[in-house]
Design a protein around this nucleic acid. Sequence first.
DNA 1: CTGTATGCAAAGGTTTTGCATCGGG
DNA 2: CCCGATGCAAAACCTTTGCATACAG
Lengths: 143, 143
Amino acid sequence: MHSFDTVIQKLRENGFKLTPQRLAIIKYMEGNKNHPHALKIHKDLKRRYPTLSFSTVYNTLNMLEKIGEITSLNIVDEYVNFDPNTSPHIHFYCERCHTIKDIFLDEVNGLSIPMDELNGNIVKSAQITLRGICSDCRKKGVG
Amino acid sequence: MHSFDTVIQKLRENGFKLTPQRLAIIKYMEGNKNHPHALKIHKDLKRRYPTLSFSTVYNTLNMLEKIGEITSLNIVDEYVNFDPNTSPHIHFYCERCHTIKDIFLDEVNGLSIPMDELNGNIVKSAQITLRGICSDCRKKGVG
DNA sequence: CTGTATGCAAAGGTTTTGCATCGGG
DNA sequence: CCCGATGCAAAACCTTTGCATACAG
């Protein structure tokens, strides 16, 4: 996701209205590394915006994804996670604490997927998810 | 997934009962390359087993995943897809026809993810999903 | 003012659950 | 026989939708 100001500018140029709810969600997502899902965002913003509705959160997230400012992640069964970091990186999902971490290893970046054409298929995006036990849980716990 | 007979053997050894429903689902999944989801399996088997219930399908799939005979895929938002091919390969999801294809390219197999330990995290499995337009849709259509 | 965005509640679709019944071992 | 598996229906859950109202431009 671009900076708050740049996203605002982009919305303005494309005729989107700058409502307080949208601005709040954009500010919430800017630089957010927690890969939140819609209900979490709704819950967190509800305090400051008591009338904020599910529809608005979902609409705004879908809108931001459509204009390429955030990415939706299908990592867990239960819900969709959103990531404002749209640059290529991969995710590590901890099966114990259910946290999603970003991974930027060079070795991984060396992944040689032909990103334009593969077996006749046009590849537009790639999602890589690792699963296991994260370093924090290893330190704390039983495994 | 192992062969039908091997899976049966494994269930027997682990004290699972060999019910007609389970056998049907195992046979359905054996060698299945369509990455079906639970409701599809239920619909397809319903003809031969009119009383087959959702619970049984979900229970059996979760059981098979638990013993490592199938893998659950979080590729689309709507539901979980299941794959009897548990050997390392990646998936291509067509955004037009919603088909999931297997990819076994050597270049992709060369992916250098340290599968045991990464930044202190223990990696147990990896899921790679590509998205785009598949070759079939390219031939047929407008894209 | 005008048309888009919001809020609310209800619907939609997938998966889980509770419980009585069935049936494999 | 016994305990796990099944079937049924209802619940739970996330997400979408319909429509009246609010409000940004």
